[in-house]
Amino acid sequence: MSTDLIQDAESARSALTTMWTIRRFEEAVDDLFARGMMHGTMHLSIGQEAVPVGACAELRDGDYITSTHRGHGHCIARGARLDRMMAELLAKETGYCRGRGGSMHIADVATGNLGANGIVAGGVPIAAGAALASRLRGEDRVVLSFFGDGAVNEGAWHEGVNLAAIWDLPVVFICENNNYGMSMSVQRAFRVDHLADRAAGYGIPGVTVDGNDVAAVRQAVRTAVERARAGSGPTFVEALTYRWKGHSKSDKNLYRTRDEIDLWRDRDPIARYTAALLDAGTLSEAEAQRCRAEARDAVRAAVRTANAAPDASAAELTSAVYAV
């Protein structure tokens, strides 16, 4: 079976549906929040869907990912159940974390997701450690470590990348460079032209890719995963993308212009991918519509299921702190 995201219809259907699922899931979250039906805060990745979908397409069962506070896309792309994700966000007992983690700590450990992380770059050394475990056991598992541009200036990032580099660990470091760490632009926060230039400082390959092109992301990650699985060490993949929504619920968009947001909306990764598939004749218009409808229906069903679930219970809180 071809795994080409442009030419192979089955791969294309799957990728397009997953991209739509992330989009629809987060739109639903945004809506529930706006209507006062969801608690806490939310970090939405709308506009960035090509990165997790392209990257996770290269993983096998048994591989790991580490995720971020903006992690719904990673979780979905790795194969998590939408109803358990939505249940977590709706503070239900059936949520992945039984209501104890919420959006910022959502994880489906069964699919190798070692967790979203509320600390910027927190998952980077953790990824190196999971890869070290794989190495010590003589396995060929690979770890994809997702993080944003902001993480690249954190100490944890440097320490984690360096450990992976010196020990040739099977990690792919994937930077979702959406141009802002909250309000701090990449232009203000870095002296290097490309964040991938930082890779040279650790003696590993660094590549910058169009993060709104799902096929390009996949190709870059494929090369990196092959290198990691072969025991040749980590790669830093910088994917250039953009978040359409604010950093979180407090964001008033004071640091960027409407024109800039509109420019990036015109580069919508889902619209671009759909157009590429229609151009190539891989999917028909009707098939593309079916992917979109399937995603919508799956998210609606997840909201229904989650809403009907029992609320998270405080009964076992104190006994939940330590593993036994």
Partner: peptide, 10 residues
């Protein structure tokens, strides 16, 4: 951090 990751991975 590497120890946390290795511990999570068994």
């Amino acid at each position: 951090g590497a120890a946390v990751g290795a511990a999570l991975a068994g």
